[in-house]
């Protein structure tokens, strides 16, 4: 029974990891088509770095991901505070809207925003892309911060107020430190979601603002591109670092809870 379980896990994880492993191996393989091992090389990384279009798209993607993650975390945190602490008309409907946004397929969000941008005359490029990315990250950041807010003891605020804390002190000394781990993991999650997105970006950006996933998509549609392997390897390592970082924050969160 135990062996069976091990085999099952091994099977699933090789399904999940083998393709990625092959991709990484081929990034260092001299053979262009990755059919057999022809010796170690770094030339695909050089080809990649020499591809100006690709590098520009990478810069665009990073810029969008950083901005989208920052704003999505900020607005998501405010939304979490509003939904958990304030009572106002339409609260349930707005909360429902957020949940629907999270469940709805990306393509629906993509074309509905495209129709909006065209209708109100926002040209397709940096701003349309940023708005779209913030919007699809928002439910995730809201949920993450919400979970944290629901977990903390509201009497902490009363206690701080009784001890003479001002509203500002309350925010900086009590609320922010408690929310910090949730804010960090929201930011990391949004950053990843933004870098990962193909569907929304392919509708709401214009030719002047090409982003990495779209560039990769148009490159691999026609055939094997070893520099894509190199780029993919970097992206895999990046997500590995991000997962570990976010896991560390969750750890910190748990430790805090034990202490509190």
């Amino acid at each position: 029974m135990k062996n069976l379980r091990l085999f099952f896990f091994l099977g699933i994880f090789s399904y999940l990891y083998l393709p990625i492993a092959i991709l990484i191996v081929n990034a260092f393989n001299s053979n262009r088509y990755g059919l057999k091992w022809d010796g170690f090389t770094l030339k695909w990384f050089k080809t990649m770095a020499a591809n100006d279009g690709l590098m520009e798209a990478a810069q665009h993607s990073l810029a969008i991901a950083v901005c989208a993650a920052t704003f999505a975390t900020l607005i998501g945190a405010l939304a979490a505070i509003a939904f958990n602490r304030y009572r106002f008309p339409g609260r349930r409907i707005l909360q429902g809207t957020l949940m629907t946004l999270m469940m709805a397929p990306d393509i629906i969000l993509a074309i509905s925003l495209l129709v909006l941008f065209v209708a109100i005359g926002i040209s397709l490029g940096f701003w349309s892309l940023l708005i779209a990315h913030i919007t699809f990250c928002l439910p995730f950041t809201m949920v993450t911060v919400s979970a944290r807010i629901q977990g903390f003891d509201p009497f902490l605020l009363d206690a701080a107020r009784d001890l003479g804390a001002s509203e500002r002190q309350l925010l900086y000394r009590v609320v922010l430190p408690i929310l910090r781990p949730a804010l960090f993991s929201s930011w990391l999650l949004s950053f990843t979601l933004s870098l990962d997105d193909v569907i929304v970006s392919s509708f709401v950006t214009g030719p002047a603002y090409d982003v990495l996933p779209l560039k990769i998509f148009s490159m691999v549609k026609v055939g094997v591109k070893p520099e894509v392997n190199a780029l993919a390897t970097i992206m895999v390592v990046l997500s590995l670092v991000l997962v570990l970082l976010s896991h560390l924050f969750i750890k910190e969160k748990e430790n805090n809870e034990c202490a509190g």
């Binding site: 393709p19 092959i22 991709l23 990962d196 894509v228 991000l242």
Partner: peptide, 17 residues
Amino acid sequence: IPFWTNSLVRTYAIRMV
């Protein structure tokens, strides 16, 4: 970890397999 890795890149990886 795969879930956090770019899904387009993973689709491309499947294609190589």
